[in-house]
């Protein structure tokens, strides 16, 4: 057994265990009501996730942020249980027609849980008896430790990053290996390169189809639908159709050399077609996508990926690639045996 096969399996084992057991940071799941008028008293019910409102009662504070630095602190907080509080805010006047206020709940155990645009405040009069305060940003901090970030709507499904996203990355790496071997076949006409190229392309196609299926489930529980007209979904589906045609092409040609030449040429075309479909079109200006990281900024940078996610995501990509390489080498060996047998006859 080669070391990389074991490494692939170990990495995937680590990914499944860490990917499912590392907890999420404390977050705010739901507030109600979700809108109010300025210059009024607001009684807000706040539902937390992985929070310790009861245990951290002594240091509990809640803030509504009205502009970049100012906000209002909750005058009273009633703790119902670890994950539920009721806070009363005296909301003052706002400058614009409306403000989407971010909610911060802070305590010693959870540090700061926050919900961006938690409440829409509509303007109701200019004068105010309520005073605004400076938000104590020095006191607000994220809970330290090996914890995955909490995002509203995504919740625990942020863990799909290690499966759905990693499948696409591993697919792309496998396709590059397949493409390289296709080139080598066209250069040398050695049939071993055709076996390798087709094996790597086939497992990559399987990964791609699974990427579509896992993405569909993720979409169902976050965007609320199995499939949308999102550009990345449709472009990925088109590039998968192009690659499925590759599999059909191979199945429909019986002559070994002809099949090798045709499929190597076709895979060049398929790969060249995939680059604009997956990497250029979704990043073009004026393209709206539900996927993170579109419209110029890559998904792996910025705030969509944090370092704790990366510590599981990169092993997932490498593990899936090595596992795919293992399956591809098994198929290569089968193909080689087929070829040797056909030479004997």
């Amino acid at each position: 057994m080669s070391w990389w096969k074991l490494l692939g399996v170990l990495l995937l084992t680590y990914v499944i265990i860490a990917g499912f057991t590392v907890p999420l940071k404390p977050g705010i799941a739901l507030v109600s009501p979700q809108s109010t008028a300025s210059n009024s008293t607001l009684k807000l019910s706040i539902e937390g996730y992985n929070t310790h409102f009861e245990s951290g009662k002594q240091s509990l504070e809640a803030w509504l942020r009205l502009d970049s630095i100012h906000g209002v602190q909750a005058s009273t907080i009633t703790v119902k249980n670890e994950n539920l509080i009721e806070a009363t805010f005296a909301v003052g006047s706002i400058e614009n027609e409306f403000a989407d206020a971010t909610l911060y709940v802070n305590n010693n155990i959870d540090k700061t849980a926050f919900l961006p645009s938690a409440i829409r405040i509509t303007k109701n009069g200019d004068e105010s008896n309520f005073s605004k305060q400076l938000i104590p940003f020095d006191r607000l901090s994220s809970k330290p430790g090996f914890l995955f970030p909490y995002r509203e709507i995504l919740n625990e499904t942020i863990r799909n990053t290690f499966f759905h996203v990693a499948l696409w990355m591993a697919m792309f790496a496998l396709l590059i290996v397949g493409l390289y071997n296709g080139f080598q076949y066209l250069r040398t006409k050695d049939i071993i390169y055709d076996s390798r190229a087709s094996s790597f392309n086939m497992i990559a196609i399987v990964y791609g189809l699974l990427g579509l299926a896992t993405g569909s489930i993720w979409a169902r529980y976050t965007w609320g639908t199995w499939w949308t007209t999102d550009i990345k979904l449709n472009m990925a589906a088109i590039s998968m159709l192009i690659y499925v045609a590759y599999a059909i092409l191979r199945a429909s040609v019986d002559d070994i050399d002809k099949r090798a030449r045709l499929s190597a040429l076709y895979s060049l075309f398929a790969f060249a077609a995939m680059i604009p479909l997956l990497f250029v079109f979704p990043r073009m200006a004026n393209v709206i996508s539900l996927h993170p990281g579109n419209g110029g900024n890559p998904a792996l940078g910025g705030e969509d990926m944090d370092n704790t996610l990366r510590m599981v995501f990169y092993p997932a990509v490498i593990g899936l690639f090595l596992f795919g390489r293992w399956i591809a080498t098994i198929r290569t060996r089968i193909e080689t045996l087929f070829y040797k047998k056909s030479q004997l006859e």
Partner: peptide
């Protein structure tokens, strides 16, 4: 529990898909 079982479902699909390919091999 924060939609954790939809992640399990995605993992199950991934496993079944790879099993199906190995079965064809």
């Amino acid at each position: 529990t924060g939609k954790i079982y939809s992640v399990v479902a995605a993992l199950v699909i991934m496993f079944l898909g790879i099993v199906f390919y190995v079965w064809r091999l």
